[in-house]
Each structure stands twice: as structure tokens, then as C-alpha cells.
Amino acid sequence: MEKRVTFDGKLLPYALLLPQLLVTIIFFYWPAIQAVYQSFLIQDAFGLSTQFVWFENYTLLFSKPEYFHSLLTTLVFSSVVAFLSLSISLLLAVQADKHIKFASGYKTLLIWPYAVAPAVAGVLWLFMFQPSLGLVSQAIRTLGFEWNPLLDGNHAMALVVMAATWKQISYNFLFFLAGLQSIPKSVIEASAIDGASPLRRFWTITFPLLSPTTFYLLVVNIVYVFFDTFGIIDATTGGGPAKATETLVYKVFHDGRLGGDLGGSAAQSVILMVMVIGLTAIQFRFVEKKVQY
């Protein structure tokens, strides 16, 4: 007779799930529901007077050109950062994967920046590029280029893009390196014997075989740029000049915390929440099914 352990109780599975469920409800669902509820309210900063207004915060938001400006800024910022950090880290990973001296040393050094907190990264870059005191900006000036991220929106954008890209390269590098190491060497050797050049081997074999990693990283990077670059922006530009670096997340903070407009801020968070749900859905659908080896 076969021996099988069975659990008859209906309660036990739920009891085992309970801790995880509690954590999810308390830290994820409850704040999310609060945000949705708050987005239907107009309230003063102290919470002394509250009015239920249904979708007014949303209509107000979409009637303001600033919101679309911020959306556009976010799209530009995230696509530039995602593209740069993915391509630079892929290049670095491919190089580090070769048989070179001190390979492990390079790898370790390249992973380091990931340990730096975003706000600290922002301050580091600010020190280098601050218009009057920054070391790098002084060097740029001696070359005759008028570098001024305090007033020029493009300069400020370039600054946050550099800081955000630098910060993300390590993470991407790690995944690309792992992905490269899992590509069977025999396939590459076979094509080398057939006479394919290194560049051709990369584009026809390595790159397609890396596509699941690349796609996963693309989604992770976009989510990173949407949410985790807040510290960098706050420390370097504060969303300025003239909103040139104000992303959607920074705007939530700015309106809600500095402006005391909790309803409008909550409405923005709800929209962001919908975006992330969309991104995650795409990731699950495509990573699981469409991207093929």
C-alpha cells in the first residue's frame, strides 16, 4: 500500500498562508486602497475638512498641461536610461566574459555601484557636476562649454540620466553576465569553425539567446526608472529647472508632501499603480510565452 501524507483540515492551508497574506494585506493592499479612497477626496493638509468629490482630482489632473509634460519627461527619461544602461552593461558583460586577466576583479568593481543608495549617488554626481563647485563642470568649462544644469533643462536631464544609468549598470551587468555564461560554448565554437566573425557570432547567436534576460531587464529597468530614481532626482535637481526633470513619481511627492494636495497626489499614485500593473502583466505574458530561445 502506498504511504501518502494527507492533510484533511480545511484550516491548515489557510493558516500556513496567513503570515504571507497578512504581510501582503497590511503593506500592499491596505495602502493601495487608502490611496484610491484618498484620490476621491479634497482635503486640507491637517485633515480637518474633507469633501468627497468622486473623479474631480483626476479631471483636474488631466486638464493641466503640467501633468502631460511630466508624463513626457518620464517617457524620455526612462527610455534613454533604459537604453543606455542596457547597452553599456551588455557591452561590459560581453567584455568581462572573455578570457582576460583580472576578470573577477573587474566583475567585482563593476557590481559595486549597486550598493550605493540612490540619494548618495545623486549627491556624488552633484558634487562632480555642480556648476560653480563641481570638479567635472570646471573641466567642462575650461573646454569652453557653458555647463549649467541649474538653468538649462537639457543639462539637468543629462545629469540625472548619467547618475541613474550609472546606478543601474551594475544590476544589468550581473544579469547579462549570468545570461552569457549559460549560453552553451559549443554553439559559439561551432559557428567560429564555420568562419563567422566575432561580431556576427554576437548578433546571430549571443544576442538572440540573451533575449529573455534582455526583456526581463527591460521591464525591470523601466520600473526602476519610474520609481527608484526619485532619490537621485531629489538630490541633484529637485525636479527643476522649470520642471525639466520632474518625473511622475517626483510629482507625486512634490504635490503631496510639499504642496499638501493629498487628493491630487493620491490620484497620481493610482494612475502610476495602473501603469505598473500593466507593465507587470506584459512582463508575465511575454517573458513566459513569447520570448523564445
Binding site: 538653468l151 533643462g153 529647472p241 522649470a242 504642496g259 494636495d261
Partner: peptide, 21 residues
């Protein structure tokens, strides 16, 4: 009222003017 946020809005506009936009 809303002076903290308003100052930022005014500063943004001044920045646009100073940048020649």
C-alpha cells in the same frame, strides 16, 4: 495659502525666462 508649492511654480517660471524659453 499653498505658498510653499506656489514659490516653486514661480521659480519654475523665472527659470524659464532666465533660460530664454
Amino acid at each position: 495659502g499653498n505658498m510653499v508649492q506656489m514659490r516653486d511654480v514661480w521659480a519654475e517660471e523665472i527659470e524659464s525666462a532666465l533660460a530664454g524659453k
